[in-house]
Design a binder for these strands. Structure first.
Lengths: 207, 207
DNA sequence: ACCTGAACACCGTTCAAGT
DNA sequence: ACCTGAACACCGTTCAAGT
């Protein structure tokens, strides 16, 4: 009896900390045991195995995502607010998106956001199947954007970089465009611009 | 001398086949060696190590993505065609997207598409930084959508499924909307709808 | 009820030795 | 130039044995 009794919560806490610091790949049962000062096999008693340990971690975070109360004057503004809130929440948990997705909990995690979107789309006057399409289009766009953004951050330096691909000679007709593409993208601005454009189109009645 | 001489190409071919069938995780050096009928260590002589083997595989596929020649009457139609071509190409290589991304080659792989988009956005009258934003917004949307779609397919059954989350009681004001959200999304339709909406907004001059 | 070490079947990789 | 088996350091997991 070298330490106070190990608890399941203690295991989850230590595992979450390892994942947060170095990503899910760094979470090995042996390192976790070392961190906790116990034998590897004790962990199995508390959480079953590595897979259900990760499941529990993911479930925990999904539960943390509470209701979403977007601010804004118009439905379009509030949809944009939902998108920003989602982005902020997910960026605070950088390893989570992929883990949640792999475990098939994405829809569960986005339910609060989806409900907020349904509300706003309804307020904007959309009904039935058309409203459902709008909700899903926004949801896919936001989640997709976050996946791309996350992957870009995680990826090592691109080679060749966009800056090399777009030297002015590549677009002789529009050097300003070439310069703009050679500069790194501003993810914040591009996110807002994209969502705003999509929402605008979805909420505008067809001609 | 139990077999004809092993070549680097032969190794890549066998590795590609393993990845295509069971995903990158199933590609172990030992299984690959068994498949080829050689000692594990022979593979190292030809390709260095597992990581550079995967690099070579990815590089190979990136090279396969040639120029993109979209058809259509208007720039908007041709941008939509670019999006469809990208979707088709990437869906033909289901394990590739993530692998390319992890290796930081996404921008390289999308260069042909990016050039096609630049051309169309220019044809639509956009210039400079505004054109660059439009190109990137479409690119992010398409890639993001494909990542989400891919993840959905790979993910096991969601629990609870959307159908359970959206029983009619959940949206008393609009039962048609609830029914639509309870049905599984049609990824084809949603993709076209989303891209069309975004492109429409990006190409329309600001009010 | 909780914890342990030994053991098993898998990895990727290195290296000295062969032809 | 090419191939080999032995060996190392790592995995996740099981299990019989302890308290």
């Amino acid at each position: 009896m070298s330490r106070t009794a190990l608890t399941r919560d203690e295991v989850l806490e230590a595992a979450a900390s390892l994942v947060k610091q170095h990503g899910p790949a760094a979470l090995t049962m042996r390192k976790l045991a070392a961190e906790l000062g116990t034998a590897v096999t004790s962990i199995y008693w508390h959480v079953g195995n590595r897979e259900s340990l990760l499941d529990a971690l993911v479930q925990r975070t999904v539960d943390e995502m509470g209701a979403i109360r977007p601010a804004g004057r118009t439905p379009a503004d509030r949809i944009l607010a939902v998108a920003r809130i989602l982005r902020r929440e997910l960026r605070a948990r950088p390893h989570l998106i992929a883990m949640v997705h792999e475990r098939g909990l994405t829809e569960r995690m986005f339910l609060p956001a989806q409900q907020a979107l349904v509300h706003e789309v309804h307020a904007a006057g959309l009904r039935g199947a058309r409203a459902a399409d709008a909700v899903r289009a926004v949801q896919f766009q936001v989640v997709g954007y976050l996946l791309v953004e996350r992957n870009r951050e995680r990826a090592p330096a691109q080679s060749p970089a966009e800056s090399e691909l777009w030297d002015p000679a590549a677009a002789p007709h529009d050097p300003a465009l070439a310069r703009a593409l050679a500069r790194p993208a501003d993810p914040d601005r591009l996110f807002l611009l994209s969502v705003r454009a999509l929402v605008h189109a979805l909420l505008t009645p067809d001609p």
